[in-house]
Amino acid sequence: MLMNNAGVTRDSLLFRMTETDWDTVMTVHLKGAFLMSQAAQAHLVAQKYGKIVNVSSVSALGNRGQANYSAAKMGVQGLTRTLALELGAFGVNVRAIAPSFVVTEMTDATAARLKLDVEEFRRVGAENNPVKRVGFPEDIAAATMFLASDEASYITGQTLYVDGGATIG
């Protein structure tokens, strides 16, 4: 089983974003997932069984100040679909999970960068979905465990949005 979960942010509006900011985010998120999947697939195909779970984000659908991050995360979804097509016949399932606001050091750092109180930032994040709460790492872990399990053996090429319903509106 492989989980591609490396991530960084280099948020900036397009007119201020540097090529280095673009390249850093693309390299960590998209190239990293590609290289790790390429290395793992040899072993997974040889054993005719395996799971790859890629981490995308609801930001793949577009997010102000995150052209690099959004493009990389949508690229992860395209990579997921393509690898599912290529590896499915060899018993390898490939899926992606796309969280929304999850309480992490990265979202706390975003609050600090925006000069917002962390608790207020979380409260506003909670208001942006039907369940009226932010996500926690345990929410993402539970969905990932399902996607990595044999109970999900008929699911491949899909992206599961774990977002408290934020993308249904």
Rank of each mutant, 00 (worst) to 15 (best):
F90G: 09
M106Y: 12
K115G: 03
L116Y: 04
G75R: 02
A84K: 08
K132E: 09
G62N: 11
D23S: 14
E151C: 02
R122S: 00
K31R: 15
T27V: 00
V76N: 03
S12Q: 14
F101R: 11
V124Q: 14
Q47I: 04
A46S: 13
E151D: 14
M26R: 10
T104I: 12
R64Q: 08
S37I: 02
T110S: 06
A96T: 03
T24D: 15
A143R: 11
Y154I: 03
A109K: 14
K31S: 03
T18S: 15
L61R: 15
L116F: 01
G78T: 06
G7M: 08
V162C: 02
D108F: 00
N129F: 00
F121E: 00
E19D: 15
E120F: 03
K51E: 06
E105T: 12
I140A: 05
F136K: 13
A166N: 11
D21K: 12
V134H: 05
A166T: 05
V103W: 12
V28W: 00
G7T: 13
I155N: 07
M3F: 03
S57P: 09
A42K: 15
V103R: 15
A152V: 05
L116K: 15
K132R: 15
S12H: 13
K31H: 04
I155Y: 10
V94P: 09
F136S: 06
A152R: 06
A96H: 07
R95D: 12
T18N: 10
E105H: 13
L79D: 09
V53H: 08
Y161D: 08
S70I: 02
T20F: 01
K48V: 07
R122N: 01
G125D: 02
F90Y: 14
M17W: 06
G78S: 08
V118W: 06
R16D: 00
A112H: 09
G91A: 09
V8Y: 08
F146L: 08
V102K: 10
K51Q: 12
N128I: 00
R81A: 07
A46D: 13
N63V: 08
A67Q: 11
L44Y: 03
V92S: 09
E19R: 13
R122H: 09
V124H: 06
V45M: 11
R95H: 12
A84C: 08
N54G: 04
T107G: 07
A42P: 00
P137C: 09
F15V: 08
L147C: 06
F121P: 08
A141Y: 05
L30Q: 06
V76L: 03
A72Q: 05
